[in-house]
Design a protein around this nucleic acid. Structure first.
Lengths: 159, 159
DNA sequence: TCTGAAAATGGACCTTT
DNA sequence: AAAGGTCCATTTTCAGA
């Protein structure tokens, strides 16, 4: 499943993960490759699915969604169809940025971006209280977003 | 702090959050604006910090980091300089994708992308066991990444 | 690796509200 | 003034030799 990535690929990925707007000529200069080679490699990485997509990262503060909340959820039953329904409900909710189905003390971990605590209260109603399969949930309110990103660690070592 | 965003801005942001490679001409067609107007608005959104940056989203599976782990951490002391030191340590670690300083049962929530559980074990040593200010931590291993993104909810309502 | 065509970006300038 | 539209120059991407 893991594609072979050489040192050039890793360097390129590190750069474009941070900033996808660097021109390929500049990327070439940084990693010591011609623009054409950079172009081919990036295209290949997209084709192979290593680069899933390019996205604009939008500020939650500037768009009026300054509160990040982490919600842990325990379910009543782990029946497949019930779990699938919950996954779909969580995934469909725009305020849910991330949802992980986990093993351990909880079953789901959600990361939510909300306008204020009122909005979160309303969401707990929609997502948790009105769902019979939610046994309990616990809320952690973020006071500071110390680090936020989806960057994959590609530090050295071309695997 | 929150910038005024009209309906055009919201639509544009929704589009480019999902896919930053849509040409401005196509964006114009979708939201009913000329390419030049789209260009101006996107530039303005970047200048105002609403769009923080453009990034390539890389597949953790394809790059050999298929395991996502959520770690909750409780600290011994909430002394400012100790907390700051921890924040810096967590933020510097490449495997830490996200770190939130939270209020509630725990003090930190970390989202990590690791190659395998061995790598995670090694990280717990570096980040938690060797840190005197970590009182305890609890690990949740993700079995399925139901939803992963940083998209801000901009559904309708041009605020 | 180089060259060149096609496409996309971004500025100039004018018009509308 | 503030924002939109059209046109045009520049930059970037990307395919072929």
């Amino acid at each position: 499943m893991a594609t072979e990535l050489d040192a050039f690929d890793c360097k390129l990925l590190m750069e474009v993960q941070r900033d996808a707007q660097i021109p390929q000529s500049e990327l070439g200069a940084r990693v010591n490759l011609s623009t054409a080679a950079v172009n081919r490699r990036l295209r290949r990485l997209v084709d192979e699915g290593v680069i899933e997509r390019y996205a604009a990262i939008v500020s939650p503060e500037k768009t009026g969604h300054p509160i990040t909340v982490v919600a842990n959820v325990e379910v009543e039953s782990e029946q497949i169809d019930l779990l699938d329904a919950m996954k779909r409900t969580f995934a469909r909710c725009p305020q849910v940025q991330q949802c992980y189905y986990v093993a351990g003390e909880w079953d789901f971990v959600l990361i939510l971006a909300v306008r204020d605590m009122d909005e979160y209260t309303e969401l707990t109603r929609q997502l948790f209280f009105s769902n019979n399969n939610v046994k309990r949930f616990k809320t952690l309110v973020s006071m500071s977003r110390v680090k936020v990103g989806l960057e994959v660690p590609l530090v050295s070592s071309g695997e």
